[in-house]
Design a protein around this nucleic acid. Structure first.
Length: 724
DNA sequence: AGCACGCCGACT
DNA sequence: GTCGGCGTGCTC
């Protein structure tokens, strides 16, 4: 008797090893095939992985249950899953799960959707609603239930009644026409000479049919989208596929419309709120090649493209590319890896590239295309700092006289002003005038932020919410609690008081809950129905406000003091993005930055419009802070139900770190506790020289680390945003 | 990720 | 006496 044929199958569960299964007679399977395998008590859909079978005692071997018609995973896709799992220290099955999203287990010929058709038979009973429905259906065509109900102006239950009566019958609907394909041969927009030469370089990178990474580094308003769309056009013209990734928030209708305008059809869309049906359709289309262009959030990187020519990572600096829960990865960097595996061209686009991408470009690892000027002869906004120590407002107000007069001029000219403050709510601190008590979060080491509109105090770290108290919880004094510092709500109040005739709108993520309301506000601003916008970082995402000519940054440098090694870079990026909103329309813009540190390098670089100088200085400062040769960063994230457990395990882990002289572990003391979704979190930071294999180091560390008990969980965040 | 197994509190 | 809470560990 011969040994049974076996295959290795990876299953989409949080499990690292592929399992060995017997292949029943008559079943032919090859690596990449989607199969059904028994796992524990349940049949589970998985993928045949390659690699020789490990020895398993015959008694424990189970047999595959069957094969699924769905398109499987190519060798390069399997390689990508393996690579990401190894790099992020995630179980391979968990990464496979991401690569299987949208996979329909019952994939095969679709059953036609059923519609309704008039039979010609008269219904048993006639009512006005039934007459309307039959009149609408009288053309003899098959209608979808929803369309028939809508066009007849009756409810679906009327139609159900007619079906029961035999006047309407179920009938298969013709298959929906395939969605229109984007057409790369439509004439593109007119490009400036700079845009045209960048576009030609990107087209060439795609035409080369090989792996490359190019930073498309263009100031706000330089027309990066038009440039990378030419690269997309090249990929489409070759009959190959293009993926455009954008931070979730940017996947808005205006963005898709811009794409549609260039290519005559909307791209396929892939993000969190696309339903299961839509996902299946996109996955299938991408796998069989019928979909050539996809616009996606970070998870789109795991789609099984048949012939991927190009990945564009728009706004590559955006923190939304980093996934923190489950498999922790940065989609921007994994895009580079995927490109290397697939032999695709990668374009990283940003007006404010991340430091690491700039450095990779400077060191020649990535190519760089620069668009240093705005499109259409428009100028960059003029930026001035207001020294709040010398020319600040009186106590209790937040708008400096110079900013107030600038707003006055702007309003008089019929233009829009934006007052930017990256702090939600009314006031970041509430304290007792009598005893000095500060309202703090019971879970985090953070102050509670007053939200006056909601009459509550909120922790912006963990979401803890309490009603605003009337008396001091420490000394019981009445009317002694005072709001300290500004949030956007407070700035709005001040703007309304200062400019009583102006129409003031507020734009912050607090509005997101009411998505409809946010859209209405954005529309109003775009139409010019708003004079002053008070907003958080939200305003930098996606939308264009052509009438905006003045930006005032209220508290520009408040984040600069933070211990975050990226504080300067983040602040510079944020202020560049915000000030870059001014003057995108017909009229030139300007920006005023209120600061207490006018001599800070970030503020000086902004005011001098010295982008290059800032990047150069910051790169040197960052290297110094990392103490060369240390460069790469990783974090071990400990989470636990209680603060004590998180701290105890964090300390135990730090003690157990392998003593490698070339790796530095920064202990729990340097990384403050936070609470996220009801769990206390602690981060241990790891610094290592570039030559060290960080994932391997972490793997060996965790293998020997004290076991996590009592609900403690340990996750690894190999920070790819480093100088690799 | 599921799902079973296991060991402690309030119910028919 | 059991039903069921979710902590722990396994999955060919």
């Amino acid at each position: 008797m011969t040994a049974p044929r076996t295959v290795e199958v990876l299953l989409p569960v949080a499990f690292d090893r592929a399992l060995t299964y017997a292949v029943p007679d008559g079943l032919e399977v090859a690596p990449g095939d989607v199969v059904v395998a028994p796992l524990g008590t349940r049949p589970t859909v998985g993928v045949v992985w390659d690699g020789g079978g490990a020895e398993v005692e015959g008694a424990r071997l189970k047999a595959l249950l069957g094969k699924v018609a769905a398109s499987g995973l190519s060798a390069s896709m399997r390689g990508f899953v393996d690579w990401v799992a190894a790099y992020t220290l995630a179980p391979r099955g968990q990464v496979l799960r991401m690569a299987m999203r949208g996979l329909a287990a019952d994939e095969g010929p679709r059953e036609p959707r059923m519609g309704l058709k008039a039979t010609g038979k008269a219904p048993g009973r006639r009512t006005p609603a039934r007459d309307k429905a039959l009149a609408a259906a009288a053309n003899g065509e098959t209608w979808s239930k929803k369309q028939l109900a809508e066009s007849a102006g009756v409810s679906a239950s009327v139609l159900d009644g007619l079906v029961a009566d035999g006047a309407l019958a179920l009938s298969p609907l013709p298959p929906p026409p395939p969605p229109p394909r984007p057409d790369p041969h439509l004439p593109g927009p007119e490009l400036s000479p700079e845009q045209a030469s960048a576009a030609a370089a990107l087209r060439a990178a795609v035409a080369a049919r090989s792996f490359s990474v190019t930073l498309l580094d263009g100031v706000t308003g330089s027309g990066k989208t038009e440039v990378y769309c030419e690269a997309v056009a090249e990929a489409l013209a070759q009959g190959r596929q293009a993926l455009v990734m954008a931070p979730e928030i940017a996947l808005t209708v205006p963005f898709l419309d811009r794409f549609a305008k260039r290519f005559g059809a909307r791209p396929a869309v892939w993000h969190a709120s696309v339903g299961e049906k839509g996902r299946e359709a996109v996955r299938r289309g991408v796998a069989d090649g019928s979909i050539q262009a996809v616009v996606a959030a970070r998870s789109g990187l795991f789609l099984p493209f048949r012939d991927l020519a190009l990945v564009v990572v728009d706004e590559e600096h955006d923190a939304a590319y980093k996934q923190e829960d489950g498999v922790s990865y940065n989609a921007r960097d994994m895009a580079v890896v995927r490109g290397r595996i697939e032999g695709a061209a990668i374009v990283l686009a940003s007006a404010t590239p991340s430091l690491e991408t700039r450095i990779n470009a400077e060191r020649g690892r990535y190519g760089r295309l620069a668009l240093p000027a705005r499109f259409g002869g428009r100028t960059m906004p003029e930026i001035k700092a207001i020294d709040m120590r010398r020319a600040g407002p009186v106590k209790g107000e937040w708008l400096a006289p110079a900013l107030v007069s600038a707003v006055t001029q702007t309003l008089a000219a019929g233009e829009q002003a934006l007052l930017f403050l990256n702090r939600r709510g009314y006031a970041p601190l509430t304290l007792c005038r009598r005893c000095g008590h500060r309202m703090k979060c019971p879970h985090c080491a953070a102050w509670l932020v007053e939200h006056r509109f909601r009459a509550s105090l909120v922790c912006h770290h963990c979401g803890y919410t309490a009603h605003s108290p009337k008396t001091c919880p420490a000394c019981a004094a009445e009317d002694s609690l005072v709001a300290c510092g500004p949030g956007v709500e407070r700035i709005r109040d001040e703007a309304v008081a200062r400019f009583p005739d102006a129409r003031v709108a507020i734009l912050s993520s607090d509005l997101i809950g009411a998505g409809e309301r946010l859209r209405a506000e954005l529309d109003a601003i775009e139409r010019g129905a708003v004079d002053i916008v008070v907003g958080t970082q939200m305003v930098t995402k996606g939308h264009h406000f052509p009438g905006l000519t003045l930006v005032g940054a209220i508290d520009a440098d408040f984040a600069l003091g933070a211990a975050d090694p990226r504080a300067a870079e983040r602040t510079f990026q944020m202020l560049q993005q915000v000030t870059g909103r001014a003057g995108r329309g017909e009229r030139p813009g300007r920006a005023l930055i209120q600061t207490h540190e006018p001599d800070h390098p970030v503020i000086r670089a902004l005011a001098a419009n010295d982008r290059e100088g800032f990047y150069r200085a910051e790169a040197i400062a960052r290297e110094a802070a990392m103490m060369p040769p240390f460069g790469r960063l990783a974090a071990i994230v400990v989470s636990a139900p209680t603060r004590e457990l998180a701290e105890a395990h964090g300390r135990a882990l730090a003690r157990s770190a392998p003593k490698q002289e070339t790796v530095r572990v920064l202990g729990p003391a340097e990384a403050p506790l936070a609470m996220v979704r009801g769990r206390h979190r602690m981060r241990l930071l790891v610094q290592a020289p570039r030559a060290v294999d960080v994932p391997a180091y972490l793997r060996s560390w965790l293998a020997a680390a004290p076991p996590a008990r009592g609900g403690v969980r340990v996750a690894v965040d190999v920070d790819p945003q480093s100088f690799m």
